[in-house]
């Protein structure tokens, strides 16, 4: 587990180091390139801001009206059988459908259960390891105008479920070690 923590901590500095070394050795205008990309990042973030406002309000309403808890409590006996944390369920359901909605709900979960809590870690790991499956399939299949998709959604959802279950299991193992 210590190795995992070390690897996690060294990954980002190491990649930044490698990229900059590549740039220097190939005599690129590193800072100009950086500014180019960074201003594009600015545009992207500003572009998703209105979407996030809409979705954060919707998620906040779902949560504070008590509707999420009500629905989660209905299915919680089933979740208990498979030992799946019910707090994560709203994220697991939304993740394949909307990327920005899942950012909103994951942030909400991390905030209300604590960002470094077991549940918070699970939410973060799920966000990092899965994709907006339904959206991705839609743009790929529509760009080639294919009508017979051969259960690609099923295969992709299997991957999502595996990612979510793996996240839960790994975070449980991690927190045993921390405590």
């Amino acid at each position: 587990m210590q190795l995992i923590n070390y690897l996690s901590n060294v990954a980002m500095p190491l990649i930044i180091f490698i990229i900059l070394m590549h740039g220097m050795l190939e005599r690129k205008k590193v800072f100009d390139l950086f500014l180019e990309g960074a201003s594009e990042g600015l545009k992207i973030t500003l572009k998703i801001f209105p979407t996030l406002v809409g979705l954060f309000v919707a998620i906040s309403l779902l949560k504070n009206s008590g509707l999420i808890d009500f629905m989660v409590n209905i299915i919680s006996p089933a979740l208990k059988v498979i030992n799946f944390p019910k707090e994560i369920m709203p994220l697991a359901l939304l993740r394949p459908i909307s990327g920005n909605a899942s950012i909103a709900i994951a942030t909400n979960i991390m905030k209300s259960f604590g960002v470094d809590s077991n549940i918070g870690l699970m939410a973060a790991t799920i966000m990092g390891s899965t994709e907006t499956t339904v959206y991705t399939i839609a743009i790929y299949t529509s760009s080639v105008k294919v009508t017979k998709t051969r259960f690609v959604l099923l295969a992709a959802l299997m991957a999502d479920i595996a990612g979510i279950v793996a996240s839960v299991v790994i975070c449980r193992m991690m927190s045993y070690d921390f405590s």
């Binding site: 590549h22 740039g23 190939e26 990309g37 801001f49 406002v53 919707a58 309403l61």
Partner: peptide
């Protein structure tokens, strides 16, 4: 909810700019 959206975007702004910048260096190198 609206306030949370702003707070999240503000923090995302810094990190995403930084990362996009680094990655555009990566894109232009070997």
């Amino acid at each position: 909810g609206a306030q949370d959206a702003l707070n999240t975007t503000m923090t995302l702004l810094g990190s995403l700019c930084l990362w996009n910048g680094l990655m555009s260096i990566a894109e232009k190198t070997k």
